[in-house]
Design a protein around this nucleic acid. Structure first.
Length: 878
RNA sequence: GGGCGCUUAGCUCAGUUGGUUCAGAGCACUUGGUUUACACCCAAGGGGUCGGGAGUUCGAAUCUCUCAGCGCCCA
């Protein structure tokens, strides 16, 4: 069959993915092999594939495929996250735009129907996209944080914590998202510096309206909720005013001036308006001074009835109107530009409002302890290590976790109220039973109980993921085999949101860590260093990339420059390099397949070449093994790239390639295809498709590359490595001579070689000179006893040996002189620096003997080369 | 304010325990090359006082301190 000169990814990828899947290679059931389990960081159920997913899942796939080839029972569990707030935001928008409906109009039940409709329509697309990337997940195990099995465990976890006193409900100042109308956890608020204004506003004294006190605020609309003015107790400017009353602008409420040492005298005017309902610090001050709380903003970010003015207006509109009023009433002293940090909702980008509300919290102190210790002691090992510091910092300053959300899409909190009593239970029936028992009213029905309106934070389900995917809250069954999981691969930005909490849940319910290793990938950024985001439009279309470069090309691109932890500036050029690599491999296959064999014995030259490449391969295999130990995946891939491209294609294949029209021995052919196959196995975890295809094309085989054993390092004990490296240097020099003198690549040239112990020994080696001749396109190798005096001989030095190429053209003496002189200058500098080192007594006395010996050898070699170059110089100058 | 990290070639980045002719890769660039594996290619080449300074050491891109610039996380 004729092979195209280009590697075409599309069909090959489909073919092999289907084959692997149908062969059941991705499936896992417990057996007596060592388990290797990974749980996927579940992408949002209605999300689409972006660069971060591709990085994250490529890394997991590499680890999974490598472990599988190492003979482990690999179980990579895929799934999706219901992503409470993000999905709800999408569904709400869809209902509004497509159906003209609002949540409140249709009610909870109907809303949930729509939400499920949406989820079924768009859900899981991302998993299909992961398959295109080659992800070798056990798809039969696909889980969803809101499916039946997972939900059951979520409720159990909630009830369990409640019963053990680790859950409580309390009024607190929270971060409120007025767009999604829900509370947010600290981790869901992103702070950014924004340009705004600081308004200086006069409040007149009640007793003497000619007197006033000026405060500074960034939020004039909250003036309507002011219940005090605070100054620092030791601030001389305001000492006399403390205790007096002032009138709140517009609304006219009379409020006291109080003293509290929270006030920063340096900021603004040194007087602070206190709005307990709308600022966390003000709330604290309010509590200390027993101030009234006037909530002037509604849960959807409009002015409330309590504001009395601008009721129903949005915050920004009300602010504008308030400023206009202050200006017209001459109470606005001035406004100045201010850069300050504004918190926005991670999901909706709405400016977060501080708001007082009643929420459910998880007590974190006891949960955090084992989770912190296990990481600090490396029981859970982080790659890279430096993430431990960040982790410790957060875990030691941890605050209670607010887990209720005022949303509908999610796990509805299993708390049921009857009058002032709360009953927490996994099912309504149990709650009812408990309520009957507690109240002694046997006739209570479900209708008498009111279930909590809120749902749980999404992370309250994903923190159970490492065991919930195995339905593993109880012992026995699969969980005992697969838990703890082998490695978690995630980006560092969710170390608190997710990683830390999984560690806590693991110890809480399983009494053991959820994973042995955590590999943190970097964040994928655009070439300008910006985080990739939809709003910036700077994220390349993942599917388009797959179309353009093939899955292997994209995997290469994304892996080859993503060392653990470091952010990766993504550049399509890298995928191009990956695609080119596939093409290179493909063409090496075409070359090999085009070779004719015959029943001749292998030449000695071929034997040397093969011994060399095999020997060199061992170093690569060894390197890969140690790289995997430390999750240095990009280094491994780079090693393979350069070995396959340079050593295998550019050198080895050229060395054994038969001359035009010639045949090759069966042995060399078989050696070559076996070696090539081995390379495909080594590369397979990184680039599964092209390797599987080429592996099969090379020779008939039982089984597939994917399920073959990963090559192990062998001790071959051959010592040809140095000799061939030396030969390569000679060839490079010969090519240089051709280049500089405009000689054709294939024009046969005679080589003279000045006799030395080294050259003698090499020439006596069977096949060595043949290999040199054929690969460098030489016409004979002639050993000479003395330096050549022939003007048409171009000299060069390799190691400490001197060679000459006799060329048919006239030698450009000027050019040649330049080259030699430059080289000479470098060598002299080199020798000088070593002489300096060796003349330093302390070096000679203190450095290890081996190091000193090495320096002495370097010096002697350098001196020899100088002598040779000088000799050439003399000859050229004639 | 507290913490973490970065600075190496024009660009993006490797460089593990301080020691090999160790300053490296890819891209970009220069020169040359196309009768049959690959122009998504081949060969050769130019390009960096490893952010500045000080220190430890026989020896520093690598360890310590300091300064400068940049990034991120938390408050």
């Amino acid at each position: 069959m004729e092979l195209s000169s280009r590697y075409v990814a599309g069909e090959i990828e489909d073919k092999w993915y289907t084959h692997w899947k149908e062969s059941g290679y991705f499936k896992s059931t417990p057996d007596d092999r060592e388990p290797y389990s990974i749980v996927i960081p579940p992408p949002n159920v209605t999300g689409i594939l972006h660069m971060g997913h591709m990085l994250n899942n490529t890394v997991q796939d590499v680890l999974a495929r490598k472990a599988r080839m190492d003979g482990k029972n690999v179980c990579w569990v895929p799934g999706t996250d219901h992503a409470s707030i993000a999905t709800e935001a999408k569904v709400v928008r869809w209902l509004r735009e497509e159906k003209g409906l609002t949540k409140s109009a249709i009610g909870r039940e109907k809303y949930m129907e729509y939400a499920w409709e949406w989820t079924h329509k768009y859900g899981g697309i991302i998993l299909k996209q992961l398959q295109r990337l080659g992800a070798s997940c056990d798809w039969d195990r696909t889980s969803f944080t809101m499916d039946e099995v997972r939900s059951k465990q979520v409720y159990r976890a909630f009830v369990d914590l409640y019963n053990r006193g680790k859950l409580y409900r309390d009024w607190r100042m929270v971060h409120w998202d007025p767009r999604a109308r829900t509370v947010l956890s600290n981790e869901e608020v992103l702070y950014k510096e924004e340009n705004t204004f600081l308004y200086h506003v006069k409040y007149h004294l009640v007793d003497d309206p000619s007197q006033s006190i000026t405060i500074a605020t960034t939020r004039p609309e909250t003036i309507l909720g002011d219940t005090a003015i605070a100054v620092h107790p030791e601030d001389a400017r305001y000492k006399d005013l403390v205790g007096k009353l002032v009138k709140v602008p517009l609304i006219g409420r009379e409020i006291p001036i109080i003293a509290d040492d929270y006030v920063d005298r340096e900021f603004g005017s040194g007087a602070l308006k206190i709005t307990p309902a709308h600022d966390a610090n003000d709330y604290e001050i309010g509590k200390r001074h027993d101030l009234e709380v006037v909530d002037v903003i509604t849960d959807d970010g409009h002015m409330s009835e309590a504001a009395e003015h601008f009721v129903g207006e949005e915050i920004m509109t009300a602010r504008k109107h308030m400023i206009e009023y202050l200006e017209s009433s001459e109470q606005l002293v001035r406004k100045e530009p201010l850069v300050h940090s504004v918190g926005r909702s991670e999901r909706t980008d709405a400016v977060v409002e501080p708001r007082l509300s009643l929420q459910w919290y998880v007590k974190m102190d006891t949960l955090a302890k084992p989770a912190l210790e296990s990481v600090m002691s490396d029981e859970i090992e982080f790659f890279p290590k430096n993430q431990k510091n960040t982790y410790r910092h957060w875990m030691t300053n941890i605050r209670d976790w607010c887990i209720s959300r005022q949303l509908w899409w999610g796990h509805r909190i299993p708390a049921y109220y009857y009058e002032d009593e709360v009953f927490v239970a996994e099912t309504p029936e149990e709650a009812l039973a408990a309520a009957r028992k507690k109240t002694g009213i046997a006739t209570l029905t479900m209708a008498d109980l009111r279930q909590d309106e809120d749902v749980l934070d999404t992370w309250f389900s994903s923190w159970l993921w490492p065991f919930s995917v195995f339905d593993g809250m109880d012992e026995g069954g699969e969980i005992d085999y697969y838990y703890p999981t082998s490695v978690l691969v995630t980006a560092w930005d969710i170390i608190f949101l997710w990683v830390a909490r999984m560690a806590m849940a693991g110890f809480e319910w399983k009494g053991e860590k959820p994973f042995k290793h955590v590999y943190f990938t970097g964040m994928v950024r655009d070439p300008l260093g910006r985080k990739m985001s939809k709003s910036l439009g700077n994220s390349p279309d993942a599917l388009e990339l797959l179309d353009n470069y093939g899955a292997d090309g994209v995997r290469f691109g994304i892996l080859s420059s993503s060392p653990a932890g470091g952010d990766l500036l993504f550049d399509e050029k890298l995928c191009e390099q990956g695609r080119n690599f596939c093409n290179k491999i493909w063409n090496a296959l075409r070359l090999v397949k085009g070779w004719e064999t015959s029943d001749q014995p292998s030449s000695d030259a071929d034997k040397i070449a093969f011994a060399w490449i095999e020997e060199k391969l061992q170093t690569v295999i060894e390197g890969i093994e140690s790289d995997f130990q430390e999750y240095r995946l990009s280094e491994s891939l780079t090693k393979l790239y350069s070995f396959i491209w340079t050593d295998f294609c550019s050198w080895y294949l050229e060395m054994v390639k038969p001359a035009h029209g010639d045949t090759m021995s069966v042995e060399t052919y078989n050696n070559t295809t076996a070696l090539f196959s081995k390379l495909m196995q080594l590369l397979h975890p990184f680039m599964p498709f092209v390797t599987e295809e080429v592996w099969h094309q090379l020779s008939e085989k039982d089984g597939d590359c994917m399920m073959s054993s990963y090559p192990k390092k062998a001790s071959l004990g051959s010592n040809v490595l140095e000799d061939v490296e030396y030969l390569k240097e000679i060839i490079a020099k010969v090519r240089d001579v051709r280049n500089k003198n405009g000689l054709k690549v294939r024009e046969l040239l005679p080589l003279k070689m000045l006799k030395s112990a080294r050259t003698q020994s090499l020439l006596s080696q069977k096949g060595w000179s043949d290999l040199l001749q054929s690969t460098a396109f030489l016409e004979g190798i002639q050993p000479i006893k003395e330096a050549s005096k022939d003007v048409s001989d171009v000299a060069f030095v390799v190691g400490t040996d001197k060679f000459y190429i006799t060329i048919s053209k006239e030698v450009d003496v000027e050019e040649e002189l330049k080259t030699v002189e430059a080289d000479l200058e470098y060598q002299r500098g080199f020798v000088k620096s070593i002489e300096k080192k060796l003349s330093n007594e302390r070096f000679v006395n203190n450095a290890p003997e081996a190091v000193v010996d090495k320096e002495r050898k370097k010096l002697a070699d350098g001196q020899k080369r100088i002598a040779m170059l000088e000799e050439t110089l003399v000859r050229l100058k004639g």
